[in-house]
C-alpha cells in the first residue's frame, strides 16, 4: 500500500516535471520566435536563395532558367570587368582601412591629454559620425567639382593646376577614398580615444622616470595596450569599406572608365540595371566570402594577441 502510494506520487512528480519542462520550452520559443522568424525570412532564406541563384542562368524577370552548377563562378573569374572591379575594391579597401586607422589614431593621440578645450576638439573630430553617406557625398561633390569647386580654388591659390577629381582616372578612386575615410574618422577616433584613456597612467609615469623615449613609449606601451581596439576598428572599417555603395553612386557612378566600380556597385548594376540576377548573386556570394574571411581572420588574430590582464 505504502509502496504503491509512493510510486504513484513519483509518477505525478515526474509528470509535473515534464510539464514544467514543456512550459519552459514553449516560453523560450515564444520569446525567440519573432527574431527567429524574421531572421529566417529576411536573412537565411535569401542567403540560401542567393546561393541557389548563383548556380543558375536567370532570365530578365529574375527567374532561374537553367542549372549550371558553379559555372557562374568560373565565368566570373574570367570576366575582365569583374576582375577589375575586384582589384579596384581591394585597393580601395586597403587604402580606406589604412588611412582611417592611422589618421584616427593620430587624431586620438593629439587629443589624448586633458587640456582646456580638449572636449570641444574631440566633439569636432567625432562630428563626422553624424554625417550620412548621401550628405557626405554631396558635400565632397561640391568640393571636387571643376572650376568653382573648393579644391580647384585652393589649388589655384597655390598656383597649381586643377585636379579633375571625378573625371580623371588617376584621381577618381582617391576622391571616393577621401570621402569614405572622412566619414569613417568620427567613429574610429572615438573608439581609439576610449582605448587610449584606458591605458593606466602609471605605465607612462614609470617610463618617464626610466627615461624611455617617446617613440619607445608609443611602440612598447601604447600600441600593445590599444591593439585589441585597433584591430576592432580596422576590421569594422574593412568590412564597411567592402560594402561601400552610396559614395560611388553619388560621386562617380563607377566611372570614369570603371575606375571606381566597386564590387557592390557592380552587383547593383548587374541586379537592377542589367537584370542579370544569376551573375549578381554569384558576385554577392563572392563578396560574402571575402567578408567572412576578414571576420574569421580578425577572430583568429585577436585570439592570438591575447587580451592582457
Amino acid at each position: 500500500m505504502d509502496h504503491a502510494f509512493s510510486s504513484a506520487n513519483h509518477a505525478v512528480v515526474k509528470h509535473t516535471q515534464l510539464q514544467q519542462k514543456l512550459k519552459t520550452h514553449l516560453a523560450a520559443m515564444g520569446f525567440i520566435a519573432p527574431s527567429a522568424i524574421f531572421l529566417g525570412v529576411f536573412v537565411f532564406y535569401p542567403l540560401v536563395k542567393t546561393v541557389y541563384y548563383s548556380m543558375f542562368l536567370t532570365n530578365a524577370l529574375g527567374q532561374p532558367v537553367k542549372f549550371i552548377g558553379l559555372s557562374n563562378y568560373g565565368t566570373l573569374l574570367q570576366d575582365k570587368f569583374f576582375m577589375k572591379s575586384l582589384l579596384t575594391t581591394f585597393i580601395f579597401v586597403f587604402m580606406v582601412t589604412l588611412l582611417t586607422t592611422v589618421s584616427a589614431l593620430a587624431l586620438a593621440m593629439v587629443t589624448s591629454k586633458h587640456l582646456k578645450g580638449t572636449t570641444l576638439f574631440r566633439t569636432f573630430f567625432a562630428s563626422t559620425m553624424g554625417v550620412s553617406v548621401s550628405v557626405a557625398s554631396v558635400l565632397w561633390l561640391f568640393i571636387f567639382q571643376p572650376t568653382t569647386g573648393v579644391s580647384d580654388m585652393v589649388l589655384n591659390l597655390l598656383h597649381l593646376p586643377p585636379i579633375h577629381w571625378l573625371t580623371d582616372n588617376t584621381w577618381s578612386l582617391f576622391a571616393v577614398i577621401l570621402t569614405v575615410v572622412w566619414m569613417n574618422l568620427g567613429f574610429s577616433f572615438l573608439a581609439l580615444t576610449g582605448a587610449l584613456e584606458n591605458v593606466a597612467t602609471p605605465l607612462y609615469e614609470v617610463a618617464d622616470i626610466e627615461g624611455v623615449t617617446t617613440w619607445h613609449k608609443f611602440y612598447h606601451i601604447t600600441l600593445p595596450q590599444i591593439s585589441p581596439t585597433l584591430f576592432f576598428v580596422g576590421t569594422v572599417t574593412m568590412i564597411n569599406a567592402f560594402q561601400t555603395f552610396g559614395q560611388v553612386d553619388l560621386l562617380t557612378k563607377g566611372g570614369p572608365n570603371n575606375s571606381t566600380n566597386l564590387i557592390v556597385y557592380q552587383i547593383y548594376k548587374d541586379a537592377f540595371v542589367n537584370l542579370n540576377v544569376g551573375k549578381a548573386s554569384t558576385e554577392s556570394i563572392v563578396l560574402a566570402l571575402l567578408i567572412a574571411l576578414v571576420t574569421i581572420a580578425q577572430f583568429k588574430l585577436t585570439e592570438k594577441r591575447v587580451m592582457y590582464q
Binding site: 593606466a200 614609470v206 618617464d208 622616470i209 627615461g211 624611455v212 590582464q309
Partner: peptide, 17 residues
C-alpha cells in the same frame, strides 16, 4: 623625471602587461 636619477615603485606595480 628621467634626469633626476631615481626610480619609483607604484601601488599597482605598473608592470607592462
Amino acid at each position: 623625471p628621467k634626469s633626476r636619477h631615481l626610480s619609483m615603485v607604484f601601488q599597482n606595480y605598473a608592470l607592462y602587461p
